[in-house]
Simulated scan of single mutants.
Amino acid sequence: MDTNRTAKLEFAVQMSCGSCVNAVKSVLEKEPGVEAVHVDLAKEQVLVETALTSLQVQSLIESTGRRAVLKGMGGTETDLGAAVAMVSGAGLVQGVVRFLQLSQERCLIDGTIDGLTPGAHGLHVHELGDLTQDCRSCGDHFNPFRKQHGAPQDSERHVGDLGNITAGPDGRASFRLEDSQIKVWDVIGRSLVVDSGEDDLGRGNHLLSKITGNSGERLACGIIARSAGLFQNPKQICACDGVTLWEERDRPIAGKGRKVPDAPTANL
C-alpha cells in the first residue's frame, strides 16, 4: 500500500559554493512531504528526511542545475537493512527498486521503472535469484507459507505479492509502497519481477487468478541484492574501470558502453 511514512535519503550532489547549498535547501525545504534537510558542502552531501519518492527528491535537487546521485537510504530507527534490484527486460524496460526495512513489521519499497506500456503492471518478489533464462528462471512467487495469491493488504497472500504499479502515458511507473510481510533479510538473493499486465489480486475468474493474479508474461526482472544504508557508500570512483560516481549514472552497470574507449580517467 502507498505510504506517507518518512525515510532518510542520502544524496551526493555536485556543489562548489554557498549559493549551491542555499539553492538546494530552498527548493527542498518548501516542498510538502520534506521534513528536514541537511547539506554538507565539504562532502557534497545532502540528507533529506521525506515522504517523497527518491526520484521526486532527486528531481527537485536537479531542478537547481546540480546533478544528484542517491547513495543510501535509512529509517528513523536503527538500521535494519536495505536492498536494491536493478530491473531490466524486453525492449527499453529498465529501472531501480529499493527496499528499506523501517521496522520489524514494515518494509518501504521505493522504485522507478521506465519503458512500460501505460497502465497497471503486477509486481512480485519471486523465490529464485536465477536469471540464466532471463525472467523465466526466477521460479514462482516467493511463498514460504504456501498460501494462495492475493492483494498486499490480504492475510491470504504470497509474501512476494506486491500488487500493481501504474505506468503513466510516458511509460514511467514511480512508486513508494509499504508492506507488512516483506523482510529485507528474507528477499536478498531472490528476484523482483514486473509483469506485462495487471494483477487481479486473486479476485478474478481465471484459473491463474489464485496462483499469479493472471498478470501476464514476465516483462522485466532483477536480482535483489544488499545495498548501502546511510553513510555506508563512500565510493567516488569505481576502482575497476575509473568511472566516476557522476558518469556511472548515465552508463550500464557492466558490459558494452560502460567505459568510453581512450577517455581520460575523471577525478573528483
Rank of each mutant, 00 (worst) to 15 (best):
D2C: 13
T6E: 14
A7G: 08
K8A: 06
K8D: 10
K8M: 13
G18F: 02
S19N: 14
V21L: 13
N22L: 13
N22W: 14
A23T: 10
K25C: 10
L28W: 14
E29N: 14
E31S: 12
G33A: 08
G33F: 01
V34Y: 12
L52I: 00
V57A: 02
S59T: 14
E62P: 00
S63Y: 01
S63E: 04
T64A: 11
K71L: 09
G72I: 02
M73A: 09
G74K: 07
T76Y: 05
T78K: 14
L80M: 14
L80C: 05
G81D: 07
A83W: 08
A85I: 10
A85V: 00
A85S: 12
A85P: 02
M86E: 11
A90Y: 12
A90W: 08
A90E: 15
V93P: 06
Q94G: 12
Q94A: 15
F99Y: 11
E105W: 07
I109W: 01
D110L: 01
A120H: 08
H121V: 03
H121S: 05
G122P: 08
H124I: 14
L128V: 00
D130T: 10
T132Q: 13
C135E: 01
C135F: 07
R136D: 10
R136V: 02
S137P: 00
D140L: 09
R146M: 07
Q148S: 11
H149K: 11
G150F: 09
G150Q: 05
A151Y: 04
A151K: 15
Q153G: 04
Q153P: 00
S155H: 11
E156H: 07
V159R: 11
G160N: 05
L162W: 01
N164S: 04
T166W: 03
P169Q: 13
A173D: 14
S174F: 05
S174G: 07
S174D: 13
R176E: 07
R176P: 01
L177N: 04
L177F: 11
E178N: 03
D179N: 12
Q181R: 15
I182E: 03
I182W: 08
K183Q: 12
D186H: 15
G189L: 02
R190N: 03
S191F: 04
S191H: 00
L192W: 10
V193D: 02
S196A: 13
G197R: 12
G197P: 04
G202E: 04
L207R: 14
K210M: 13
I211F: 02
G213V: 01
G216S: 02
R218P: 01
I223R: 10
A228P: 07
Q232H: 10
C238H: 08
C238T: 07
D241E: 03
T244I: 10
L245E: 06
E247Q: 15
E248W: 15
D250T: 11
G255M: 03
K256Q: 15
G257Q: 12
D262Y: 10
L268R: 15
L268E: 13
